[in-house]
Nucleic acid binder design. Structure first.
Lengths: 202, 202
DNA sequence: AATAACTGCGTCATGCTTGTATCAGTTAGT
DNA sequence: ACTAACTGATACAAGCATGACGCAGTTATT
């Protein structure tokens, strides 16, 4: 009793549809968490019926979305070598990756579901290591994580022409955002303020 | 043509109903922004029909709610003497007041509508004054305001038994939250960190 | 080329929410 | 005590989102 009882070949373009739906859902739901499946289908350039074919229910779609985001987060954490790299470097790197991945889901969605225990643990580990190396004085990793995520949200929503971004010494706009988030987070958690003396930038 | 064309006396208990509805709405909508009017009516101990009598539509109710919250904010800002008191004191005081008023609407509601331009300006003024007295180095008041509000949210949701709260020297739990928020905000905005040397606590 | 999978479109049923209306009973204000 | 206002209960009519079908046409896979 494996799983081929029904000799159902999953065609390639069907998976492409699934992907497009998820993509569209991420975008649309970020703007309005209560958007209808029809809106999502439209954004994906598909019929509503197709959405129902790929996902048994709205809940199933949301689950898949959460799963997808969760995977991206985990990938980012791994890529940033959160477990082994010097914590300050790792912090900068995760931030960079998160911005790159356009994980701008904005939290508008209650897709806090994407923050699975594994993801949370990954972040907590980062802030625990930051504390151990005395880069911050906040003792509770969970608190560091919450502050970081909250500030991440704010930095993402900051308009491109904000003076707060312009005052940075970074060339790239994205780089300015990263710098701002890192410095603000460290300051919030009682960091020694390495200020502009961050020896990194890839 | 004033407003007494219909000799409509507004009875006292009707206004009480209105108040109860707003109260319930604030609570219920904080937990779920898409809650139905029936849920709100139940929470208020009234019939759904009554809600419709007091408020022409759902939108009207939301407007009234936003207005109400906005007023509370403005009252708090005024009470804290944001315009005249030493900014550090004012910051501590607004925080205290906001916590007291149980303005825990949580932001779950998109009641960002409660943050009227007047309220925003009030907060911006506070952060501009903090900058001018060199309590913080962040130049853009709007950025300070956003950071403050984001951290306010996190501090409010912090469980009572969090080590982050326990590590504070404050007696009261609420006092510990206030201290945490003030210190975290100042740190985030590049403050000189008056640390535990805050000469206040009413 | 043949088969099975996939899609678009239209239809239908269902349940939930909003909003309106009516009516009998209760309560406040003078 | 009289009147007008208020309330609960109930019914009713949209409107909308969800979800399930079927069917005809298209596309991928072998």
């Amino acid at each position: 009793m494996g799983e081929k009882s029904p000799p159902r070949r999953i065609r390639a373009d069907a998976e492409r549809s699934t992907a497009r739906i998820l993509e569209a859902a991420e975008t649309v739901l970020a703007a309005d968490a209560t958007a209808s499946l029809e809106q999502i289908a439209d954004a994906a350039g598909l019929a509503r019926a197709t959405v129902h074919r790929r996902f048994a229910s709205r809940a199933a779609l949301l689950d898949a979305l959460a799963e997808r985001l969760s995977q991206r987060y985990l990938g980012g954490l791994a890529e940033a070598r959160v477990k082994t790299a010097p914590p300050l470097i790792a912090l900068h790197r995760v931030t960079e990756i998160v911005f790159d991945l356009k994980l701008c889901h904005r939290f508008a969605i209650q897709l806090t579901a994407a923050l699975t225990p594994e993801v949370l643990d990954g972040l907590d580990l980062l802030f625990a290591r930051l504390r151990d190396t005395e880069a911050i004085t906040a003792v509770d990793p969970a608190w560091g994580r919450k502050v970081y995520l909250a500030l991440l949200h704010e930095v993402q929503e900051l308009p491109a022409d904000s003076p707060t971004l312009a005052s940075s010494a970074a060339a790239d706009e994205t780089e300015a955002r990263i710098d701002l988030l890192v410095r603000t987070t460290l300051g919030a958690l009682g960091g020694g303020l390495p200020a502009t003396a961050l020896p990194l930038t890839s």
